[in-house]
């Protein structure tokens, strides 16, 4: 039996998200012979561009075109997917802000298993899908088995599966609009109003070559002084992880990550940052990364080039002194 695997494609302004090709890789990890179908919802010219772009990577591309899909409302899309997906199918979506909105409820509506935030897939044995997840902020991993006899909804962690660039699928675009909209566009109790853009701050960390980035490990707002001192000594700017913004210690425009800024510095200092995938998702261009963390098992040490296992409150002032003394 050829297994059918579907991937829900997130796209914006006529460009498919990076996860589109990562999900091809994930689907092949489930079953290398699987027939892989992309599902793309949207409208107009942008939608067609995306469908044609990914047709080289998917055997089939299912297109749903409706004016009402010009902004993706997960509540409506969930209903559309239930209408067109075969029973017992497997569907993958990215574990991003859209996938998190769509997927848990989709698994209930399909009466299928839900495998959230998979970082690796090891294959299927009969109806048991074996995958790897992380728990406790990535401090430990776990193998999970998922009973897929009734289908499954899987979200794949962005960046965890290496994009499949083979592009030999030669897929065809199939218009599923009529089938999806049979019975009309789904009524939902949730209406989109607008997107309010994030505020602009006093520094633009996306332009910085040197970033001194601080996380929850700084413990207290008053301790930020040592971070500013280091940034000054290095000639860089101060950035941070999300908890520092949540605590209102630094402004949102300094937050690095998927729900913050995407930065591409030459040098990135991660001070008291554990290294969640949402944080690392905002660091591009492979900078020279230095991690300073008191926990030798912190996941950030996997991503960094150089690590120092130390208390930042002690070590950072020492480092600043050394730099200042070295000129």
């Amino acid at each position: 039996m050829v297994r059918q695997v579907f991937a829900y494609i997130v796209h914006k302004e006529g460009v498919a998200d990076d996860t589109a090709l990562e999900m091809v890789a994930a689907a092949k990890r489930i079953d290398s012979d699987a027939s892989i179908t992309a599902i793309v919802a949207g409208t107009g010219a942008d939608l067609n561009v995306v469908c044609n772009e990914i047709a080289s990577s998917y055997q089939e591309v299912w297109k749903i075109d409706s004016e009402a899909l010009s902004y993706p409302n997960a509540e409506a899309i969930r209903t559309l997917l239930v209408r067109i997906l075969p029973k017992e199918g497997l569907i993958i979506a990215p574990h991003d802000t859209f996938g998190m909105d769509l997927a848990p409820g989709l698994s209930i509506k399909l009466d299928a298993a839900y495998l959230p935030d998979a970082v690796d897939i090891e294959g299927v044995d009969e109806n048991r899908l074996k995958a790897v997840r992380q728990e406790y902020s990535g401090q430990v991993s776990t193998h999970v088995v998922c009973d897929i006899s009734g289908g499954a909804v899987i979200t794949a962690r962005p960046g965890s599966f290496k994009a499949d660039e083979s592009k030999g699928a030669g897929g065809q675009v199939v218009d599923k609009t009529a089938e999806a909209l049979e019975g009309g566009f789904p009524e939902t109790g949730r209406r989109f109003i607008e997107v309010a853009e994030a505020e602009v701050g006093d520094v633009d960390i996306t332009k910085s070559d040197i970033l001194v980035s601080v996380g929850r490990g700084i413990e207290d707002e008053d301790n930020l002084e040592i971070v500013y001192d280091l940034a000054r000594a290095m000639g860089g700017d101060v950035a941070c992880s999300r908890p520092v913004v949540d605590a209102r210690w630094l402004e949102k425009s300094r937050q690095v990550g998927t729900s913050g800024k995407t930065v591409k510095p030459k040098v990135y200092m991660a001070l008291g940052i554990s290294g969640s995938f949402q944080h690392q998702g905002g660091i591009k261009g492979s900078p020279f990364m230095v991690a300073i963390n008191k926990n030798p098992k912190a996941p950030i040490f996997q991503a960094a080039d150089v690590g120092v296992v130390a208390d930042i409150l002690d070590f950072v002032p020492e480092l600043t002194d050394k730099i200042n003394g070295s000129r």
């Binding site: 495998l115 430990v140 991993s141 776990t142 193998h143 009734g150 996997q302 960094a304 690590g307 120092v308």
Partner: peptide, 19 residues
């Protein structure tokens, strides 16, 4: 429908050079 089989710490891989 989903069960944990085991817990493990993944191979460190390349990782940072610890000073």
């Amino acid at each position: 429908k989903i069960k944990q089989l085991d817990y493990f710490v993944p191979d460190a891989g390349e990782g940072a050079e610890i000073l």
